[in-house]
């Protein structure tokens, strides 16, 4: 559930007192019509709060924590686990690491680029898989009342509502902000992950683990691509026969 408009207004008057809505929108890049619509509906999206807090140099996670729904974020200070860190590394970056490690000395050239920023194309699903003990989905579903198939559908689409992301973290017993990183609502720095933590976790992976992980990711990617190709083929067949 998005945030109640009343609480949002209270928060906003604390963050930017005596500032017009127009100014807030200009500074934060939130569209005026979007904000107006959210206020009318009485539900303000989490992304709005994140954008505004960034504009006013407030930590978005801390800002979210001032709302009842996300109050847990304030007290949670668990660092990300190794598996979570690795899950937030893009597949291409994993593959690059495999190549760098296996290539003969000196052949890869200098200055390898750092990891691409979070989130990546399958970050949500990879994150949930990384913290899943096999029962996680059931626990989240029981705690939030969201049907398992709806939850899975969100993961497949690499989306997860912020509240569900936090509920997932809670059900898995990991840092509550991790899910917000995986869904791309906040950055890893904003969530309090130590700088370079993902790179360090990647460096700590053994060659075997890294290669196996990259292989899993590649296989999943292959399945997704093949499914997309099949869908595309089906559409093409309709064009061929009926247009």
């Amino acid at each position: 559930m998005p945030l109640p408009a009343k609480a949002f207004q209270r928060w906003l008057s604390g963050v930017a007192p005596d500032t017009s809505t127009a100014d807030i929108c200009r500074v934060s890049g939130v569209k005026r019509t979007t904000l107006a619509q959210q206020m009318v509906r009485g539900k303000v999206a989490e992304t709005t709060v994140v954008s505004i807090s960034r504009a006013y140099n407030i930590n978005p996670v801390a800002a979210l924590a001032t709302f009842d729904t996300y109050s847990g974020l304030a007290s949670s200070s668990l660092p990300p686990t190794e598996k979570e860190l690795v899950s937030q590394i893009a597949t291409v970056d994993l593959l690059r690491a495999v190549i760098v490690r296996t290539a003969p000395e000196g052949s890869t050239g200098p200055g390898q680029p750092g990891l691409s920023p979070t989130p990546h194309a399958t970050s949500v699903k990879n994150w949930v898989d990384a913290i899943d003990d096999g029962e996680l989905r059931h626990r989240v579903s029981a705690a939030t009342g969201v049907a398992p198939q709806n939850y899975s559908a969100q993961l497949t689409a690499n989306r997860l509502a912020p509240e569900l992301a936090v509920a997932t973290s809670r059900a898995a017993g990991v840092g509550l902000a991790s899910g917000l990183v995986a869904t791309g609502l906040v950055t890893e720095t904003e969530a309090g992950w130590p700088p370079g933590a993902r790179q360090a976790a990647l460096d700590r992976l053994s060659d075997g683990d890294l290669t196996a992980l990259a292989g899993e990711r590649l296989q999943a990617m292959g399945r997704t691509l093949r499914r997309q190709e099949q869908d595309q083929e089906q559409t093409e067949r309709i064009w061929e026969n009926l247009v």
Partner: peptide, 23 residues
């Protein structure tokens, strides 16, 4: 139903045009 398919194909536009042009 048929008309809707034609509308959809029109929307899909260029990409599909290129493919059928190849064929």
């Amino acid at each position: 139903g048929l008309a809707l398919i034609w509308v959809a194909s029109g929307r899909a536009g260029r990409k599909h045009g290129r493919v059928s042009a190849q064929r």
